[in-house]
Amino acid sequence: MINKISKKNAGHYIWGGSCDGWRLVDEAERSIIHERMPAGMQESRHVHRRSRQFFFVLSGTMNIEIDGTEHILREQEGIDVPADIPHQVFNKSANDLEFLVISQPNTKGDRFPAE
């Protein structure tokens, strides 16, 4: 059965105290998450041993540090993060940041603090 998926019917969770995540696709071999990060928030620096991730900005501006280099992504821009590379997303702007995170395979059980 094929169903339409949106933030309205996707599984929702809160992370970092005030950030939202909606699991649009949650399969063993891939996940697609729509995330909202309020102004001034950041995630902890981490690494995925198996999962490759692609970040795509829907609205706002993303600062993302990948292996020591900071990149700035604006609306409709994305960046690929290979497995085993430390990274961290920041919202240094005054507005909400909304983005997609596409992971292959799924990151469940595959998130570790960066050394």
Rank of each mutant, 00 (worst) to 15 (best):
K4V: 09
K4R: 02
S6Y: 13
S6K: 08
K7N: 10
K7E: 10
N9R: 11
A10S: 13
I14M: 09
I14E: 12
W15L: 10
S18Q: 14
G21M: 09
G21N: 08
V25P: 01
D26I: 03
D26F: 06
E27C: 05
A28T: 14
S31E: 12
I32N: 01
G40W: 05
Q42K: 14
E43D: 14
R49M: 08
R49T: 03
R50Q: 15
S51Y: 05
S51E: 05
S51D: 04
R52G: 01
R52N: 08
Q53H: 12
F55Q: 00
F56I: 07
T61D: 12
N63T: 15
E65T: 15
E65R: 15
D67S: 14
D67N: 15
E70W: 00
I72K: 06
I72R: 07
E75A: 12
E77I: 12
E77P: 14
I79L: 09
I79A: 02
I79F: 02
I79S: 03
D80L: 13
V81Y: 04
P82Q: 13
D84S: 15
P86V: 10
Q88V: 13
Q88Y: 04
V89Y: 00
F90Q: 03
K92H: 15
A94E: 15
L97A: 06
E98R: 10
L100Y: 13
V101L: 12
V101F: 00
I102C: 14
Q104Y: 11
P105E: 01
P105D: 03
T107G: 06
T107N: 11
T107P: 15
K108N: 09
K108P: 01
K108H: 14
D110H: 04
R111S: 13
P113I: 10
P113V: 08
E115I: 14
E115R: 11
E115L: 15
